[in-house]
Nucleic acid binder design. Structure first.
Length: 800
RNA sequence: GCCGAGGUGGCGGAAUGGCUUACGCGGCGGUCUCAAAAACCGUUGAGGGUAACCUCAUGAGGGUUCAACUCCCUCCCUCGGCACCA
């Protein structure tokens, strides 16, 4: 007979809700703790990833509450987005209706897990009282020149029929559907996230409690590289070709320069020259190649000589100008100086086309030759400058700084920083998103919708065909509007915002979900923010987390908030795998949390998912493991019958040890070992029988992890209030002190014997005892004792 | 190539200078039962030995130390991010 989990769980979920046990109210007399998990997209069903994410969060929220923190633990739904639109097309319904249905269903499922959310603060981004503020924020950005419209080549997903941000392109494919991303020339709205690039990079240093890999991924994405822009003059006229390099120390070895085929100067320098046709043909050929083909690293570098020459400004040497496919217009200046002796790509290209090389850095240790003929590959390491004029003999790292300074002084170069980050494209040619609050007027141009007219409501009756442009364009009443300025006929922007816009500030909204003068109440935000602990998947390491950091800095610039980072501490939980693979519909290896709850209950599911692996690593789903967790809870259920009036002192000791371990482990997110310690505690209780005090503490320790069974047992032993209102126990350090201790005895570092002695026994006494130890005799015989090492209360090592 | 994380029993994982393998899963043996399940008890790194016990083992190799999974050096492998990035 297993314990009646179904009855227990339903009963307490209902009771917690009735009592509004987890409602958050600002309270001055308590320290606040804002715990947030990344809110879900309401796809209709929670999956194991959600269960893991939210269980981790719930343990911490409940734990902090019992430690007398004033806890904010909200939940909401990232409700705009393509799946709703696709489902609506498929089922011939409205995305609005479909989304609401999904939200209702998911809310039910989350409640069945027993999570301690303050449901009164629930937020849904597709409600007009939420997306109104997206529009408000957009207008604020527009006013400050941070939202702007521009025509450029943008990422296009042919399957989703919409544009994508750079951050949404993963390995050349759409982040959502993996279809190959194409380039399209379109006029679109961008957010100037690049204006914040320095701060986004610098402030990473503040994020001491973020995982190293997220910090490194963000830094990679921002992609700062420091170098020098060098000005090469053309030989024939005074025009200048700027090139960017991070290796200015190799400038004396630059023996040719290469322009990207798209470089605007190419056509000019070949005009009327003998090579014009050949170069044009080459450019034509490259333009037909896709970016993927062009950037594949194993493809041979191709290029042609333009017939033109430039002057290397450091030594006035004439160098030929080439055009090659391995130089990209979108990075740096679209032109490079080639140093074949010290850059492998340049080396291969130079060998292929018979271009000259010059060694300018010599590695003293490695005997690198200074004669280019003997080179078999480029030397890219550090060394001493040679063939570098007045810089000869300097270590190259030092020369780098000196040459850069000297070039600036001479006016032939400029120290510069290049970034990989590009502005954020937010226009989407889709229906189910926030309308961009802009009107185009033939007379006045781009006119922002006045604040008073917000929200620009999403019409409910847009036609869904699933193809051919944004559905909003087909809704006359929506698209055709008067210009707010001149009252003449105008046309509304019919694109919607990327949904990452919505999630870039929702954490602020939770502080005051009903705010109606601004996106959030400043007073509430001041109390609750920043988020003390944020928990979510690693897949958002760049996307959502970068955007949220950007928005936070923007609000700070608006003086609406006084902090610049939204999330003090971040935990990225690992994925849940089945048979070593991510659970997915297409693989058919999904384990439905609902089925597990039915079979074993929410407490068992919570317990297993925390116990099976540390939160940051991947978790392999094990049906047998979950049965083990269930077994444990049943065991716990049974020991309530074994209570006695006075617990054995040795058990009280176990209790204090457990309190210490569980407290420390939850604080450092080691839930698996916290549970292991509780299991040991339960095993001890099982054997010895607990009294009420010991049992009470055991229940409290388990309650954040398995709240329902804990609540039930808590009431059974005679408590009236919820266990979540109990105080987290403190351990007594006195109780951890043992009277005797088992010392390990080593001879030459190898375990040979053990000895039980009183704690803090004197060294002399110990020595005496040890030398009497019969087990040690064979190891010590006829060998003089060289050293006697005593680590108090731990170990003795005899060196002979 | 650069950056980051990691490599420990049959499996998930403990241990951050001091008894390697906590806790759990699985396996094996037993108790209860007509039987099974559940529950309970015992056992379980490898090799050797009747046994006491010995030897070996934390990706590989070296080093520091009385003592190394842990610190240092070299290398290998796995996973993730960035990348013809100048």
């Amino acid at each position: 007979m297993s314990y009646p989990f179904k009855e227990i769980e339903e009963k307490w979920q209902k009771k917690w809700q009735e009592d509004k046990l987890f409602a958050a109210v600002a309270q001055k007399d308590k320290p606040k703790y804002y715990l947030l998990e990344m809110f879900p997209y309401p796809s209709g069903k929670i999956h194991m990833g959600h269960v893991r994410n939210y269980t981790i969060g719930d343990v911490v929220a409940r734990f902090k509450k019992m430690q007398n923190f004033n806890v904010l633990h909200p939940m909401g739904f990232d409700a705009f987005g393509q799946p709703a639109e696709n489902a609506a097309i498929k089922n011939k319904t409205q995305p609005d209706i479909w989304t609401h249905k999904c939200i209702d269903w998911m809310r039910q499922e989350l409640k069945r897990m027993g999570f301690s959310y303050d449901w009164a603060r629930e937020v849904s981004t597709s409600e007009d009282n939420y997306y109104k503020w997206n529009q408000w924020i957009f207008l604020k950005m527009y006013e400050r020149g941070l939202a702007y419209r521009k025509k450029s080549a943008v990422n296009w997903c042919p399957s989703c029929e919409t544009t994508l941000a750079n951050e949404e392109v993963v390995a050349g494919g759409c982040w959502r559907c993996s279809a190959g991303v194409e380039q399209k020339d379109l006029e679109q709205w961008f957010l100037k996230i690049t204006e914040y690039k320095e701060r986004l990079l610098e402030d990473l240093a503040q994020l001491k409690e973020w995982p190293e890999r997220v910090l490194s991924m963000q830094a990679n994405w921002l992609g700062r590289s420091q170098g020098v822009e060098i000005y090469f003059r053309l030989k024939d006229n005074h025009k200048v070709i700027p090139v960017f390099t991070t290796r200015v120390d190799t400038i004396f070895g630059a023996t040719y320069i290469v322009l990207a085929p798209e470089h605007p100067l190419v056509k000019e320098i070949i005009q009327g020259k003998t090579r014009e046709k050949e170069v044009l043909r080459f450019i034509q050929k490259v333009s037909k190649e896709s970016k993927e083909v062009r950037t594949a690293s194993d493809v041979k570098k191709e290029g042609v000589f333009t017939g033109a020459w430039a002057i290397n400004p450091v030594n006035n040497e004439e160098v030929p100008i080439w055009v090659a496919d391995y130089v990209l217009m979108e990075y740096g200046t679209g032109a490079i100086m080639a140093v074949p002796a010290h850059d492998q790509r340049d080396f291969l290209f130079a060998r292929e086309h018979g271009l000259p090389m010059r060694v300018v850095i010599k590695s003293p240790g490695h005997q690198v030759t200074t004669s280019p003929e003997e080179l078999t590959e480029a030397y890219e390491g550090d060394g001493i400058q040679v063939n570098s004029g007045q810089f000869d003999g300097l270590p190259n790292q030092e020369a780098k700084i000196k040459i850069a300074a000297w070039m600036e002084q001479q006016g032939i170069g400029k120290i510069q920083t290049h970034w990989r980050l590009r502005d954020w494209l937010i226009s989407r040619q889709r229906y189910w998103g926030t309308p961009i609050p802009i009107i185009y007027c033939p007379k006045c141009g781009i006119v922002p919708v006045p604040y008073a007219d917000l929200p620009v409501e999403l019409p409910k009756d847009a036609p869904f065909t699933g193809k051919g442009g944004s559905p909003l364009g087909k809704v006359k009443e929506f698209a055709e509007v008067k210009c707010p300025k001149c009252k003449g006929p105008g046309r509304r922007e019919t694109d919607t915002m990327a949904t990452f816009f919505d999630s870039s500030w929702y954490f602020l909204r939770f502080s005051s979900p009903q705010a109606n003068a601004e996106p959030f109440e400043r007073k509430e935000v001041k109390y609750w923010m920043p988020v003390d602990q944020y928990i979510g998947g690693i897949e958002h390491a760049i996307l959502h987390l970068l955007y949220s950091r950007f928005f936070t800095k923007f609000f700070k610039d608006l003086t609406m908030i006084d902090f610049s980072e939204p999330f003090s501490r971040l935990l990225t939980q690992g994925m849940v795998l089945k048979d070593g693979q991510v659970m997915s519909k297409s693989r058919g290896n999904i384990v439905d949390p609902d089925a597990i709850i039915k079979k074993y209950g929410a407490d068992t599911l919570r317990l297993f998912i925390l116990f099976a692996a540390p939160p940051e690593t991947e978790l392999e789903w094990e049906e047998r493991g979950i049965a083990g967790a269930f077994k444990f809870l049943n065991r716990l259920w049974r020991i309530q019958k074994n209570l006695k009036t006075k617990a054995d002192p040795s058990l009280v000791k176990v209790m204090h040890k457990s309190i210490k371990k569980v407290t420390e482990d939850i604080e450092s997110f080691k839930f698996n070992t916290a549970i292991a310690s509780i299991m040991e505690f339960v095993n001890a209780v099982y054997q010895q029988g607990a009294d009420k005090e010991v049992f009470s503490n055991l229940i409290i320790l388990l309650s954040p992890i398995a709240p329902h069974i804990s609540e039930e047992l808590w009431q059974i032993i005679g408590n009236k209030e919820s266990v979540s209102l109990a105080h987290w126990p403190k351990y007594d350090p006195q109780m951890l002190i043992e009277e005797t201790v088992t010392l390990v005895i080593q001879v030459n570092g190898r375990l040979r014997s053990k000895i039980d002695v009183p704690i803090d026994i004197s060294e002399d006494k110990l020595k005496e005892l040890v030398l009497l130890d019969a087990k040690l005799k064979p190891w010590l015989e006829n060998k003089p004792l060289k050293n006697f090492i005593l680590i108090p209360n731990k170990l003795i090592n005899l060196v002979v």
